[in-house]
Nucleic acid binder design. Structure first.
Lengths: 195, 195
DNA sequence: AAAATTATTCTGACCGGTCAATTAATCTGA
DNA sequence: TCAGATTAATTGACCGGTCAGAATAATTTT
């Protein structure tokens, strides 16, 4: 794949991200995506097999990007408390980015219940998230602050709390409450881990 | 509203539940719903204003029904442990029912990010869930097993853990794992509450 | 000019909602 | 009681509109 082709694909995926965030997974059309990318209708079809192919690449791209960012943030810290705080900071970045991502992510979760391809991409994302949780928990253990019985279970619990709080925040439709939900989520994870 | 009208509406909503579970919120058509209800295409439009109206009533119906069932289950018990176990039993009923409900519920959550009406119905559902959590927590406090700093926060955490585990289970696509996720979820809530 | 890329047009399919026509149910009054 | 009248419920053909994908045309690059 040429450098230019790669750029074009990135451009289309980026446009698809904004388009899906605005209009929703099923509502969005290839025309919408082309409009957001400032290209004509034929372009997305030229660079991707079909609509689903564009959107699958979108899901891959955004989950991978989030994971890399969160992982880097956590690896930059040394203590358990700092790592956990850095993780939460990376997850709850700001209302705008979180709204955009979780709107799209929720759409994909809903689709994934009936689409094997999306389910697989999401499964990889989950595994990546669990690996971040494990990093943090192992550090907490080495500091004697907590004792995990099972890294996998704790990873699932942390993911549940993060997704759950984020969804609940999203449903309030109130950007102001972002800080509150972030703090509550951090507290909940601390309460769970250090028990 | 006559008795017969009420029955017909229930019949259509029930058909819509199955149809949405099978095909997804956006994919499902009024024709599908009519087919599942064994009536002609005009009937749903006769008893409801439009497609969204049918589906809004569906969301109201299933969230209200779940809440009533969970509430009754919890109120039937006397001790903290029994109430919590009864709650989890009512939430994780069986793979089939859970899959059906959460497939549809996820669809509605995704829609709710762009639909005020659905968001409102879901907000009421959340409040109802929080009230159940509060029942359980207050009982736990009166037994001296735990001390809640904030009923609302704990309600949010419990809801996060339940929705989170359920979604993660749904994404495995494996009915066999239902029991494991149920037990993990219960353990996570206990770990969180009794800390 | 040939090839690659982008823009435009076409096509077949499908959907939600409407509505005229039909059928079923209910009512009325002798 | 029951025939005729009135109302309610149901049907399915139809219409305007939209979309994905394919085909084609135009443009740019090499």
């Amino acid at each position: 794949m040429s450098r230019k082709t790669e750029l074009r694909r990135k451009q289309i995926i980026k446009a698809a991200y904004q388009a899906v965030s605005d209009k929703g997974y099923e509502t969005v059309t290839l025309q919408d995506i082309a409009n957001y990318a400032d290209v004509s209708k034929g372009v997305p079809n030229y660079y991707f097999q079909n609509k689903e192919d564009v959107l699958a690449h979108l899901l891959e791209e955004i989950t991978e990007r989030i994971y890399q960012k969160e992982k880097a943030a956590v690896e930059n810290e040394t203590s358990f408390q700092e790592m956990l705080q850095a993780y939460i900071n990376a997850v709850f970045v700001n209302p705008e980015d979180n709204e955009k991502f979780y709107k799209v992510y929720l759409d994909f979760l809903a689709q994934a219940t009936r689409n094997e391809r999306y389910r697989k991409i999401n499964a990889r994302f989950y595994q990546n998230c669990f690996s971040i949780s494990q990093l943090i928990i192992m550090r907490g253990e080495s500091e004697g602050l907590l004792h995990s019985m099972n890294y996998d279970d704790d990873g699932k619990a942390m993911r549940s709390l993060i997704d759950g709080y984020m969804i609940q925040w999203l449903m309030t439709g109130d950007h102001q409450k972002h800080r509150t939900y972030k703090e509550s989520c951090l507290k909940a994870i601390q309460t769970y881990l250090t028990s």
